[in-house]
Design a protein around this nucleic acid. Structure first.
Lengths: 161, 161
DNA sequence: TACAAATATTTTATACTTGAAGTAAATGCA
DNA sequence: TGCATTTACTTCAAGTATAAAATATTTGTA
């Protein structure tokens, strides 16, 4: 006889992968829903807005609209509305790009930087709390597994183009 | 000297968990975007519609509206519109619940069952292809890790209620 | 039996999302 | 230079998402 797994027997690879994806989705939704609630309650904002601020916070020189949608992997038209609203509130500004009147750079304002700093600190604490079942080492290990997944996905994309 | 990790040194648990979440989100979005595209191209449908059919397919007796939103972890009002559209297309029906005129059971029609069977088969194949970087065993292992996450989240929820 | 509270769902307002169409500007090349 | 193509962005239509208010019905209990 061969070595058998601890609990249920392994299904086909296809079934195990499907199960993995369903678990994945469930966990992802749980965390996202929780973040959404917290952002609403503590900062009266939303996840998409937070994501845009987060992207901009990594680029002091600003990002063009298409770069924002590229980084966040959301559609172009989507970003317009979110940036519009954040601009109205004074958290960011659109700066004309010299030499290209089609484009503009989106940059955090001082207020935007300060507001995002507060949100980011809270965000990290929430995540750490939610993922408290993982110590530093196992978090790293799982993150590495997910890197494998990313690599697999990227390879597949390249193949299909 | 102590044993050091293969690549970068471990950050604080908080940072490692944040990194894990960001990887998680990225992978999740990649897979979701790919599924969305495929569902549109092959079946002219969307992920939310697929999810509703999938939930119903596991309950031959049907589910109440609130049970669907419970299973899918989406809001109540959301399900109304999706079910409306699927009903118009004849993929499901609302059946009155005898003895409770507020509620209705939503059930797949024959056509709905057949249509979902085709979609589910394709869906499993897409997932299996996307996650081909994992063999049955490592898929199972990662799924088990995610179970840990679920448990951690559930415990946290219980604590905060 | 009355009737307050709870339950099931829909409706509403607002925001997010995509893909496609539209507008304006920049680029490539005959 | 002239003009088709590409690029950057916005607008639009339809669908998805939430939370909160509204509606209808059932349940608990005095």
């Amino acid at each position: 006889m061969t070595i058998s797994p601890s609990k249920a027997p392994l299904e086909t690879a296809s079934k195990e992968r499907l199960r993995l994806w369903l678990r994945f989705l469930k966990a992802s939704r749980s965390v996202e829903n929780s973040l959404r609630e917290n952002l609403k309650a503590e900062f009266n904002t939303t996840l998409p807005r937070f994501d845009v601020l987060a992207a901009l916070s990594r680029y002091a020189d600003g990002l063009k609209m298409s770069q924002i949608s590229g980084v966040l992997k959301v559609s172009n038209g989507n970003v317009t509305g979110i940036v519009d609203r954040l601009a109205e509130e004074g958290l960011l500004i659109r700066v004309p790009v010299p030499g290209d009147r089609r484009a503009s750079l989106v940059r955090l304002t001082q207020r935007g930087q300060e507001e995002f700093a507060r949100q980011a600190a809270a965000h990290e604490a929430w995540i750490s709390d939610m993922l408290s079942g993982f110590d530093a080492e196992s978090a790293r290990a799982l993150a590495d597994d997910l890197q494998t997944l990313e690599t697999s996905l990227t390879a597949r994309r390249a193949r299909d183009d």
